[in-house]
Design a protein around this nucleic acid. Structure first.
Lengths: 162, 162
DNA sequence: TGCATAATTGCATAATTATTCTTAATTTTG
DNA sequence: CAAAATTAAGAATAATTATGCAATTATGCA
C-alpha cells in the first residue's frame, strides 16, 4: 500500500524537482520509491494538493505547484519524512541585512537551495543568487522576515531557523 | 471564423473573471462573444497561453492564469519574440526592492548584462553581482529608480522596461 | 502575380484524467 | 467491544483534453 500523507509529501518533492508530464509517469516514479498506487489515486492526490499541469516553452506539459501561498499547512511536508527528505540541504544559518536574506550552507549546497527557493515561486522573494556556500535572496518590499522564515520552513525544519 | 489573437485576449479575460471548469464551457462562452471554435482549438490555445486547470476548495476545477513570472519568462521564449529577446541581452524583467535593482534575464545572460552595466561607469550603480539569470545592482543612495531605468535603456529598448 | 511555405483549424480519435461504485481499512462512538 | 461512520483506494469507465491528419487560409518572396 501507500501512506497517503507520506505519498503526498513525496509527490510534492518529485513535482518540484523533476519534469513529470502525466500521471502514469508519476505513478512509475512513486513505484520506484515503494509507493504502489494507481492513476486514480494520483488524480485525487493532485486535486487535493492543487497541483496543476501547464505547457512549457518546449511544447511539453509538466506538473507544477502553482503558488506557495495556495498551499495549505496540511500539505506541507511534515514530521519524520520531512526531516529525511529535507534536512540534508546543507543549511547552516539565516541572517538578514536590509531586505536581503543571507543563507549560509555547507559547501556546494547553495545552488540547490536557491533553486528550491526559486521553484517555490513565492511572492516574498524577488530573486536569488547562489555561490558555493551562500545564497542571497532579495525580499519583496512589504514582506516581513517572518514570512521569509515561513517560506524557508518548507525546506528547512523550522526549529533550525534562527 | 475567429481571429486567434483576439480570441486569446478574450480567453484570458474570461479565465480571469469567470469560473470556467472545462473547455466546452469555454467554447460556449466564446460562442456567445461571436468566436466560433472547437474544443480542439481551445486545447491548443490553452497550451499556447499556458493556462492551467486547478482544483478549488469547493472541489471543482477552474482554469487559471499561473504565476506571472512563470508566464512572462516562457512567453518571451516563443516564436517571433525570440529574436528580439536576444537583441535585448536576454532581459526579462526589472524590479526594485529598497536600493537594489533585481534584473531577471534568460539563463546565461546575467553576467553579460552586469558587465555592460559595470562598464557604463554610472554613478547610479555602486556595483553589481550576477548569477546565471539574475543581476543584483546596488543603487547609490539618493538615486531614483527612474535614473536606473534610464541607465538600463542604454542596453535595453526602453519600451521593454517595466 | 503566382508559387512555396507556414499557420490555423476542424474532425476523428488517441491519450489522459476524473469519477462512480465497491470494498477494505481505520477511526469514532455508544 | 461492536456498530456506525469516515477514509482510502482499486477497477472500470465516463469525461475531458491533446493530437495526427487533411483541408484551408494567410504570408512571404522572387
Amino acid at each position: 500500500m501507500s501512506n497517503k500523507k507520506e505519498r503526498h509529501a513525496l509527490i510534492i518533492d518529485i513535482i518540484k524537482h523533476e519534469a513529470v508530464s502525466n500521471q502514469w509517469e508519476l505513478c512509475d516514479k512513486l513505484n520506484q520509491q515503494g509507493h504502489h498506487v494507481t492513476q486514480a489515486t494520483l488524480s485525487r492526490d493532485i486535486k487535493e494538493l492543487q497541483i496543476t499541469k501547464v505547457a512549457t516553452s518546449n511544447g511539453k506539459y509538466i506538473y507544477m505547484i502553482p503558488d506557495s501561498n495556495h498551499l495549505k499547512d496540511s500539505m506541507l511536508l511534515q514530521g519524520e519524512h520531512r526531516a529525511s527528505v529535507i534536512e540534508q540541504r546543507g543549511y547552516i544559518s539565516l541572517e538578514f541585512s536590509g531586505n536581503i536574506a543571507v543563507i549560509k550552507t555547507r559547501n556546494g549546497y547553495a545552488t540547490g537551495l536557491a533553486y528550491d527557493i526559486d521553484m517555490s515561486h513565492s511572492d516574498a522573494i524577488l530573486g536569488t543568487i547562489a555561490g558555493a556556500d551562500t545564497v542571497f535572496a532579495i525580499i519583496r518590499e512589504g514582506t516581513t522576515r517572518d514570512e521569509v522564515r515561513t517560506l524557508l520552513s518548507q525546506f528547512i525544519p523550522s526549529e533550525k531557523i534562527n
